[in-house]
Computed example of a mutant assay.
Amino acid sequence: MTHLPQTVQSWGKPGFEQAFKREIEALDAAELPLQQGLARSSHVADQPFHAMLIDAREAPGVLCIKAGIFYGGTIAGCSCADDPTPIDVQTEYCVLQLDIDRTSGEARVALLDD
């Protein structure tokens, strides 16, 4: 389960957006549904990703955050010694919905079709 306690603690305070970005960008990419969000490539690249806060609101017991994620993807070749396919990183983008429990900081993360 993904935990974002600093995001919860900073809710309603100056610096909320920076705290959210810092905390989500520190996560391992495998904790987010980035693979399912690929549109131009076949595998998530092993490089940092960047988050953009789109919307944040409070609902009973949870923070509802909509975020855009910019990340890299690669098109896998056959990995043969004579494979002419260059390993090129494509820019990918997806939108995630994060519902963060206000008490525990546990976050449910879902890929949106936006």
Rank of each mutant, 00 (worst) to 15 (best):
L38I: 02
P5H: 07
A45S: 01
Y71N: 00
E31V: 00
H43A: 15
G77T: 07
D55K: 15
Q6H: 06
Q18K: 14
E17H: 05
A29D: 14
K66G: 03
V95A: 06
M52Y: 03
I69C: 07
A76Q: 05
R108A: 12
I54T: 10
L96G: 12
P14Q: 05
I54H: 09
D83Q: 01
E23H: 06
H43D: 09
K21P: 06
T74E: 06
G77A: 08
A29R: 12
D88N: 04
Q90S: 07
V44S: 03
D83W: 06
E17Q: 13
S104G: 02
E31I: 03
D83P: 01
G68V: 12
A107L: 11
G61P: 04
D99G: 14
P48S: 06
T74Q: 07
G73H: 04
E23S: 02
D99I: 12
A26L: 04
R22I: 03
V95M: 09
A29G: 04
I87D: 05
T91Y: 03
Q47I: 09
D83T: 00
E23A: 04
G68A: 15
Q6D: 11
D28M: 09
C80W: 09
M1D: 15
L112I: 01
V8Q: 11
A110M: 10
C78M: 05
D113K: 03
M1T: 15
D55R: 12
Q6I: 12
D55C: 14
Q9P: 00
F49C: 11
P33V: 01
G68L: 13
S10W: 09
L63T: 07
D83K: 04
F16R: 09
E25C: 12
A110K: 11
V109S: 05
D114L: 09
L27P: 03
D113M: 12
R108T: 02
D46Y: 04
P84H: 07
E23Q: 02
E31Q: 09
A76F: 00
Q6F: 15
S42M: 10
L38P: 00
D113F: 14
S10D: 10
Y93Q: 15
V109N: 01
F70K: 06
R57W: 08
Y71V: 01
L98W: 05
L98P: 05
D88H: 05
S41Q: 10
V62S: 02
C78A: 08
A76L: 04
D114Q: 14
H50M: 05
Q6C: 14
A81D: 15
Q6L: 11
E92W: 06
H43R: 15
Q35L: 12
Q35R: 02
K66C: 14
Q47E: 08
G15K: 03
S41H: 07
Q47C: 10
T85K: 14
L27I: 00
L98E: 02
D101G: 03
V8C: 13
G61A: 08
M1S: 15
L98V: 12
V8F: 10
V89W: 00
L98T: 11
T91I: 06
S41A: 14
